[in-house]
Every structure is written in structure tokens, then in C-alpha cells.
């Protein structure tokens, strides 16, 4: 199989740039589902959901991050991934995530359906569940 064309990707968080370099493929998840991006992808603006972000530096070298909510912008010059959080799986704290998940679940249970409060709690819960899964995957 012919080698894939590399393209530039930058992963930015409010706390600084977390990756900036060439990759051959990105896989992540938008609001509408999982998505894989190769070089020369059609321009896209998408909303990202918490998931495991994979950056393929080559077929065998894959960087993974636990990504929070964010946005992805694909343009002819490269890909820009803007996420609220990006952690290396090894740096996640399982006990801390369990605690956060518990609090989010409690908040969701006590919130009235249809309110902004409920919507926020549901978002938090989904994020911590995803991170917990990634963290436990990394620990196993």
C-alpha cells in the first residue's frame, strides 16, 4: 500500500498547544459520529464530542489523547482541533474521574428535566464517563 500523505494538524486547548506537527490520519468523534480524516479532506467545521483522539504519525505510531468538547476545522492548509481539554491517557486520575462522574450523576438526578442545569449535568456526565473509560483502558 502506498504511504499516506502527511498533513499538518494542530491541537489547541485554552491551556496551550498540545500537539503541532504532521500526521497521516486523525480519528475522532463529532456530534454526528466517528470520523477519520486523511490528507486533502473536504473543508469541514465540526463539533467534537468527548472521545479518544488518535493522531497517526505513521501507520504504527499513534498518539492518543482524551479529548473534551471542542471543534474541528479542516481547511486546505491543515487541520485545527480546538478542545477544552486534552490529556494523555496516562495522566488521567481514575479516582478523581469517578468522583466527578458521581457528582455529575447526582446533579443530573436532582435537576429538573428540560432546564439548562440538566443539560449541563448530562454533558458533564458524558464527558467523565468517556474519560473514565479511556483511563481504565490505559491502566489495563
Amino acid at each position: 500500500m502506498a504511504a499516506k500523505t502527511p498533513f499538518r494538524v494542530e491541537v489547541l486547548t485554552p491551556e496551550g498547544s498540545c500537539f503541532d506537527g504532521d500526521v497521516v490520519q486523525i480519528s475522532t468523534r463529532t456530534k454526528t459520529g466517528s470520523i477519520g480524516i486523511l490528507a486533502r479532506h473536504q473543508p469541514l467545521l465540526g463539533m467534537l464530542e468527548p472521545t479518544e483522539l488518535r493522531l497517526y504519525r505513521s501507520e504504527s505510531e499513534i498518539l492518543t489523547y482524551a479529548q473534551g468538547e471542542g471543534y474541528i476545522q479542516v481547511s486546505p492548509d491543515g487541520v485545527l482541533v480546538l478542545v477544552e481539554e486534552a490529556h494523555e491517557p496516562g495522566s488521567l486520575d481514575v479516582a478523581d474521574l469517578r468522583e466527578k462522574l458521581r457528582r455529575a450523576s447526582d446533579a443530573l438526578a436532582s435537576a429538573q428535566a428540560g432546564t439548562e442545569e440538566a443539560r449541563r449535568a448530562a454533558t458533564d456526565k458524558r464527558r467523565w464517563e468517556t474519560f473514565l473509560r479511556i483511563a481504565e483502558g490505559a491502566a489495563a
Binding site: 463529532t30 456530534k31 470520523i35 473536504q42 469541514l44 465540526g46 463539533m47 471543534y71
Partner: peptide, 23 residues
């Protein structure tokens, strides 16, 4: 410069209104 040239071709996932509502 770049916004004008290719914004017509951009694909939105989900649609632009929903993205805006979260931005």
C-alpha cells in the same frame, strides 16, 4: 482572505446553527 474563498464549500457537522449555538 480565506473565509471568502472557500466558505461556500465547507461541510458542517452538524449544521452551522447548532455549532454556533455551542460556540
Amino acid at each position: 482572505a480565506s473565509g471568502a474563498s472557500h466558505h461556500a464549500l465547507v461541510e458542517y457537522e452538524p449544521d452551522a446553527d447548532e455549532i454556533l449555538a455551542r460556540l
